[in-house]
Amino acid sequence: MGDNISETKKTINLKQLSKNSLKRNDKKFGRKKPRPNDCDKEVIPAPDSAAAALEQEDVGDDIPVKKIKLECKEASDKVIQDEKWVSGLTVSHKKNILDPKGWLCSDIVNYSLDIIKKQFEHIHGLQLTNFAPLFDEQTKPWKCDKKFEHIQPPSVQVHHMGRSHWVTSFQNNNNEICILDSLSKSKNQTVNTPSLEIQLSLIYGRNKTSIPIKILDSQQQENGYDCGLFAIANLVEFCFNPDYSFQTKTSFKSESMRNHLVECLENGLFTQFPQNSSQTPDITVLKHKILTINCCCSCGFQIGWMKW
């Protein structure tokens, strides 16, 4: 019934299908024999495949490709800002000076003092502002690695008074010690901070039991960022005329001070900061702003304040 069944049987060698038919190294590592299309140049996985998921993990789950490009740009901007501008200062310092809300750091102030000190050799002082003492919260006394040196008049100094604020002090040939503070009229500003008292004692108080300080009615800043600019401008004004400075009240053009400072630093030479041409009244000593620092020893600071 139906088709005839062939009695011829096809012989199959099962040994060829087993692992034993592979070479010894192939057996050990489970290597398979090559198959067609195994040597394709590129295999693009499906979006929902396991291979595609692995590629996304290599890039990072939380960092998209676009964000990586932005980070590279930020890194390049940082390199540009760290490039040298003038000796000791970088491009970021220049941007900070030109920023209307930028505070002057000690690097900018100290480099300015270095230029002015070489320019006005007859003016004493102009010491690094880093000599200001720091208060140790654990041991309580004030301490510093290096201290301000006593100087003879005419002398001038910029001080960081410990409250994110810069002021200028000077001693004229009449031995009058004065402070120029662009925030002296502020309700929240107190001139006699402990840090400033110690600095003034070290500079002007050798062999004195007390130091009378005059707080001059100097030009006031119009914001909370320009104190460093006014401190340098007042210092330069004194250096150009130490005998007759501040007999009249200054009237600096606040809108030009930042550009003028950049120009002076780039030229390595300071000129007087531009002022308005209008006449200003004589400078006066502010009422109730005469500061007297009492010293307990000849070195110019109270016992127990400082630790060397």
Results as ranks from 00 to 15, higher is better:
28 K>Y: 15
28 K>H: 15
28 K>W: 12
28 K>I: 15
30 G>V: 08
37 N>C: 12
39 C>K: 11
40 D>E: 13
42 E>H: 12
42 E>N: 13
42 E>P: 08
42 E>V: 14
43 V>A: 11
47 P>N: 10
47 P>Q: 07
48 D>I: 04
49 S>G: 06
50 A>R: 15
50 A>P: 10
51 A>F: 07
52 A>D: 09
54 L>G: 10
55 E>S: 14
57 E>Q: 13
58 D>I: 10
59 V>I: 12
64 P>W: 09
66 K>L: 11
67 K>R: 07
70 L>P: 09
73 K>N: 15
73 K>C: 14
76 S>Q: 15
79 V>F: 06
81 Q>H: 14
82 D>A: 03
82 D>S: 04
83 E>S: 13
83 E>F: 06
85 W>I: 00
85 W>M: 00
86 V>F: 03
88 G>L: 07
90 T>S: 06
91 V>L: 14
93 H>V: 01
93 H>M: 03
95 K>G: 14
95 K>R: 12
96 N>V: 06
97 I>W: 01
97 I>F: 00
98 L>H: 10
98 L>R: 08
99 D>Q: 03
100 P>N: 07
102 G>F: 00
103 W>I: 03
103 W>M: 02
103 W>T: 02
105 C>P: 08
106 S>M: 04
106 S>L: 01
107 D>P: 06
110 N>I: 06
111 Y>N: 08
112 S>L: 03
113 L>C: 04
113 L>Y: 03
114 D>K: 06
114 D>N: 05
118 K>A: 06
120 F>G: 02
121 E>Y: 10
122 H>S: 02
125 G>Y: 03
126 L>Q: 05
134 L>I: 11
135 F>M: 01
140 K>V: 05
142 W>R: 00
144 C>I: 01
145 D>W: 05
145 D>T: 06
147 K>C: 07
148 F>T: 04
148 F>L: 05
150 H>F: 14
153 P>S: 13
153 P>G: 15
155 S>A: 14
158 V>C: 14
